[in-house]
Design a protein around this nucleic acid. Structure first.
Lengths: 190, 190
DNA sequence: AATTGACCATATGGACAATTTGGTCATTTG
DNA sequence: CAAATGACCAAATTGTCCATATGGTCAATT
């Protein structure tokens, strides 16, 4: 089946990207791992970049699903956004593929990887933005520029989880939730 | 006079670092520009790194002074912090030396420059932290972890001024002040 | 005592060859 | 005949010298 071969290729590529990074993975490696000829890859993907892009698109869906799962409709908006953001950042750092891609950008700054991670971040901002819009609609929070707010929320979580650890002891999940509430909640809630 | 020679060297080095970057500047260049022998530099500075470090230390003093100047004791705390942070970020981006060093870190990631810019950021956080502590003392704002708060404020300004422009139209100074007030002020004020 | 530039070990960069790699396509295969 | 393939190619990357440049030292000089 054709779509089965495509899945094999995506699986093999994702596995190799996660283990060796994007640049260090060759199309021949992927072909071998997927048990297909190298040419076959190019019947499904225009280029190596497009293959990476499709993998990351799948990752975005996966992360959104994880974030959605972390939320609970019966809880207040801010608790849910906290859970979603924390889960997203957790995924970003712990998942082999994203962790490797982040490392690759830091260490060698591969352009294609930079692009794809920027896309991932934009998707996360958009995800949060929709939650904010819904909450505004429901009157749970004060109206605001939802895109800037979502953008700042993600930046804040990256700062608290990734950047803060460079010079200090890591903050616990609870501390982060408190800080998030202190700044954003009390700044937004009616 | 000895301190005069030292000043000459610092001046020459700062000028050359700003024009060509840290890595692309040679000690011989600096010596020529300062009208001293290369050996003389090493009677004042242990190494090229230490020379850079001392220049940046001076820069920190200069930026703090600028930030202080931007503030006005008769204005409310948050307006002053906004002015200080905005001025700091403005300096960081417009001043030749800092701009060149930031570019160098982005493009080639020179380790010594990375260190020195991290030190600059830490100094700015510390500067803001003291302002926050003073405001807490005076009862102008609610007590909080001043270091984390200062850290997040700086990160927020960098996000709004530097990162936001990568994908969007720049925000005006007034818009940034409003956003800052929306999140931080209303989250902190009694 | 302060200053200096010749000097040294090492790092850097350029030139060139060898190898690797992303991508193509004529051929094969089921 | 449509899908799959791997030999093949141009371009990029890597490896290897070697010449040069550079950070730092120190004996000679001022």
């Amino acid at each position: 089946m054709a779509s089965d071969r495509k899945r094999q290729i995506i699986e093999a590529a994702a596995q190799s990207f996660a283990a060796f990074g994007y640049k260090a993975t060759t199309m021949e490696q992927i072909a071998k791992l997927a048990n297909v000829g190298k040419g076959t890859i190019y019947t499904f993907f225009k280029s190596k970049e497009e293959l990476l892009d499709e993998i990351v698109s799948g990752l975005i869906v996966e992360i959104k699903a994880e974030a959605e799962l972390a939320m609970d409709p019966s809880l207040p908006f801010f608790e849910n956004v906290h859970r979603a953001l924390y889960r997203i950042l957790e995924f970003r750092q712990r998942h082999q593929l994203t962790a490797k891609l982040l490392q690759e950008v830091r260490n060698i700054g591969t352009a294609a990887v930079q692009e794809v991670l920027a896309k991932l971040d934009r998707a996360m901002v958009e995800f949060i933005r929709q939650k904010i819009d819904a909450a505004v609609e429901k009157g749970e929070i004060r109206p605001c520029n939802s895109e800037i707010t979502a953008f700042l929320m993600l930046k804040t979580y990256i700062a608290l989880i990734v950047d803060w650890e460079k010079d200090h002891e890591p903050l616990t999940k609870e501390q982060i939730a408190e800080l998030f509430a202190l700044y954003f909640l009390q700044g937004l809630s009616k």
